[in-house]
Amino acid sequence: MNVTMSETQMDTLKPESELTSNARPVEAGDVVIEIDDVNFSYDGNKDVLRDVSMNIAPNEVTAFIGPSGCGKTTLLRCLNRMNDLIPGAGLTKGAIRILDTNIYDPAVDSIELRKHVGMVFQKYNPFPKSIYENVAYGLRIQGIRNKAMLDEVVRESLTAAGLWEEVKDRLDSSGLGLSGGQQQRLCIARTIAVQPKIILMDEPCSALDPISTARIEDLITQLKTQFTIVIVTHNMQQATRVSDKTAFFYLGELIEMADTTKIFSNPSMRQTEDYISGRFG
């Protein structure tokens, strides 16, 4: 686990201004997210994650797989501190470092963190606002009022999410009027509009039909050139299709993490093999 960083790599990780940082060339072998021996509990007593450690490299898609209740979604929600919203929940051990900053440090503002670590939810959840306002929302809350800039970002984000052609004539109609797949892509557009460095996806396709799923998967593959993506999925085929690395969780522990091809062709652990061959879960 103990990946040592060279000083040069540290230099490349120096924070830059938000809106340009994603354009930075990243070399393979960088670490964007470092999860260090983490235990997590919802009530302070029973740990639902135990001794989880892993590194996530930039511009890669990392998939979390595992049976229901294995803690993969919990871990994902630790990465942008969405678990803070649950009273009493928190890390009981270890640390999570993103861009070399311990995100549970008191000096870290969870709100700032979430501007850098975006999230796409299982059930698409656009606001009951217009398509335009949905995408512009993240910028508006940062106080950006410049109409030209908003227009530009909305167009770019929708284009990046592959939705621009479909909605460009009805940007003012409600986001809730789109089809399920479109709504999910709208949510992705909304997330990338604030230019995060990392996008967390919590089973983004589980509520969608196969065609929409395929489009989202394509989108994920395109997006990884710009963002680091962590995706939780139940669907092992999806993991093989979109991810570069795969982590298998079982009963709150990280069993194995490796290149996706390796995991699915030649897992080193017995439990992993049982799971991917469909013997349980």
């Binding site: 900053t101 000096a107 503002d109």
Partner: peptide, 16 residues
């Protein structure tokens, strides 16, 4: 890495 330079406080990308 213990040798890595200590990041200045302003370097915290998630500062308040």
């Amino acid at each position: 890495d213990i040798n890595s330079p200590v990041q200045p406080q302003s370097g915290n990308p998630f500062a308040t």
